[in-house]
Nucleic acid binder design. Structure first.
Lengths: 197, 197
DNA sequence: AGACAGTCTTGACACTGACAAGATGCATCT
DNA sequence: AGATGCATCTTGTCAGTGTCAAGACTGTCT
């Protein structure tokens, strides 16, 4: 890496993506500025537009990357543990990749019909619903679908509320343990709360 | 109402709030513009700043109004029906007042420590947790808290996913019926799916 | 009538996203 | 080797935005 920056950055797209994720994690997607990103990367103010078209294009790339990361995390958890672990992995993804998560579920910020992001979203959906049948495999099809939707809603709601510090403080400070305890209400009924276990 | 607008608008604060809600419902809080609101209200471009300080101040007022509306809806549902109805009312609020809902749970857009919004949020929290005990009144305290958190997570996740068109199409087009069916999984177990019943 | 506070306007500044046109460097073909 | 084509990045520019400061207008209170 020469001290004098070459005319071509070489890996500007990835650099901008990473800088965008950092900036969003710091102050939210609303305050994101393409020019600020360019300044951080040491390029001119119009360089980002070349790689992403416009601001929504950049956030589209962030969302697509996020869906891929989520799909990876879900499939890994699904192979290693049971359905509850997959739900906890969903929450862990949201906490560990807060910036991606916040963009993914805000389609007014990007191009939701973009081909790349649609494909990535489908990957995540497949991973998410792939393990649904294991928890209620003796029920009807509609029961399976409802149980899967309920599980997704629960972990998604937990993730968003946790990120906004909206959940009661009694759940502790460890998001995974809290998510496991709350999700256990759905998967095992309210009889056996497993917090701290 | 004289045709020539008087120097003092008379009810500018409420007019701007309503216009902001409309604009957010149309194109999301990210694309909100104070100057566009001023144009809609027929006042000068700096008039909004006088009433709300800055853009975040306006969204703070939107969030506070939203929390009050949510508290009203929850208490009404709680008095009229059971706990499941309260959860459905939460979803109905999110769908009917999409703009408020989208701002409320995005604290990076406003001043979350503002006194008025904190009080309104407390009202909504009280209304939300006021009816938790009725569903698991024979359980332990921690069980009650977990069940309440699980219920809140589920309906909140359902609301956000529904608004983003992220839920499977098989749930139908009526958000209240779909929410009732999904929430029934938590309240009654997966044995008795009540969709369409 | 006069002072005063609240309401709204005017003017200005820095910043942003987007567009057009040009400069630079790499790869490929003849 | 030399020329061509193309992706990459820069420079310059424009309209639009949020925010601040200063001033104009209006109702109220003494």
């Amino acid at each position: 890496m020469p001290e004098t920056r070459p005319y071509h950055h070489g890996d500007l797209r990835q650099t901008l993506l990473a800088a965008a994720v950092d900036a969003i994690a710091e102050s939210g997607p609303a305050r994101l500025s393409l020019r600020e990103l360019a300044r951080r990367a040491g390029v001119s103010h119009a360089a980002p537009a070349h790689h992403f078209g416009d601001k929504a294009g950049l956030l589209t790339a962030v969302a697509a990357e996020g869906y891929h990361l989520l799909a990876d995390a879900l499939t890994a958890a699904q192979q290693a543990g049971d359905f509850l672990d997959t739900g906890v992995a969903y929450v862990r993804f949201a906490v560990d990749h807060r910036a991606h998560f916040e963009v993914m579920y805000r389609p007014d910020l990007y191009h939701p019909d973009d081909q790349a992001v649609a494909a990535a979203r489908q990957r995540a959906a497949d991973a998410l619903y792939g393990g649904v049948g294991t928890v209620t495999d003796t029920r009807t099809d509609s029961g399976i679908a409802l149980a899967g939707a309920a599980a997704w809603c629960l972990v998604h709601g937990f993730a968003t509320l946790w990120l906004n510090h909206a959940l009661p403080a009694g759940l502790g400070t460890d998001p995974e343990a809290a998510a496991r305890a709350v999700a256990a209400v759905l998967f095992q009924g309210p009889d056996q709360p497993q917090v701290g276990g």
